[in-house]
Design a protein around this nucleic acid. Sequence first.
DNA 1: GTAGCTGTACCGTCCGGACGGTACAGCCAT
DNA 2: ATGGCTGTACCGTCCGGACGGTACAGCTAC
Lengths: 182, 182
Amino acid sequence: MPSARDRVLDAYETLLVEQGPAGATLDAVAAAAEVSKGGLLYHFGSKEALAEGLLQRLRERSAADVEHMRADPGGAVAYYLQTSVPGAASPVGLTRTYLAALRIADGSATGEATRRALADVDAQGLAALRTEVPDPVLSWLVQLVGDGLYLRTLTGAPLTGDVGVDALVARLREMLISTSRG
Amino acid sequence: MPSARDRVLDAYETLLVEQGPAGATLDAVAAAAEVSKGGLLYHFGSKEALAEGLLQRLRERSAADVEHMRADPGGAVAYYLQTSVPGAASPVGLTRTYLAALRIADGSATGEATRRALADVDAQGLAALRTEVPDPVLSWLVQLVGDGLYLRTLTGAPLTGDVGVDALVARLREMLISTSRG
DNA sequence: GTAGCTGTACCGTCCGGACGGTACAGCCAT
DNA sequence: ATGGCTGTACCGTCCGGACGGTACAGCTAC
């Protein structure tokens, strides 16, 4: 059993992803984490502090994910795209945390901080991609494709058509090779 | 001055995009539309009916947008990507409505209907792209890039780096040509 | 005279947050 | 070794406020 604090963050993420901000009330989070409301507020003194805890986890996992990208034997591109596809979670759980944070990236004060944190994650990811794909246009393109896969996860829609991510990765790899040759 | 009904939907969209679902209260929507709360409830009998009105507008604008894609002299790909970039609204206002709908695509009952409507829009857009890009992998890739741009708009982040959408469209066009030749 | 609103007053519910209280583990001086 | 103190972890309850929604009495342009 993970610590209560981690269980609270897990439950917060789950509720944000599955029900949106409206469903992620303190009561609901506490119930899902099998913690009393008082216990939740012991760890996170307010809803804003809870969101800040999520952002902290996001930053930690982003740093860990970048390490995985650089170290992956299949390359950063394949790692990035494959961990962006719905259902396939990244080894450090970044995908889930990222999607949860997206749900609270609204116009509020915490939303502002959230958007900044998400922008940092994006920038770090792009930088990691550029070590494999130096061309700025191509690396950006790869990242946008991954982001598009994220968006599909956000809407909960299954992948369009019958084309898999593997085919996408393969095609992109061809492009990268032909570009580096040209 | 547009009709009160349209102004209400405009205000609803604006509040959803700029402040998220939490900011789009009936009171706030009525105030932003310069309509009394009673007047809002005259047109939309409940918050759910208001959301349904947004989805209806989404479907109408999606159909109109597909027409623009097919008719655009620059091609469907360029039209799709350029109307996906933050700031550049599509001529029929689909981008704004799409982003607003994304904000209410949560786990609720209306969220379910919203996700279905968004999936329909995506499917129609992909079908339109395929008239210009028959290759299923490539057309999907183009759509994912556009979706990635959408996501950037959602987080409110400026475009990463100093590479413009024009460069992206140009590069994609090269890929499409080289593929059709090969 | 009626469709299309405005404006106000109000209700029930739910949520965030504050608060007081409980259980218990560890530690340390005597 | 034990009594007392401290900090950690958590529980249960209550309150103020906001939100969705209802009801209704007007006004006014066509």
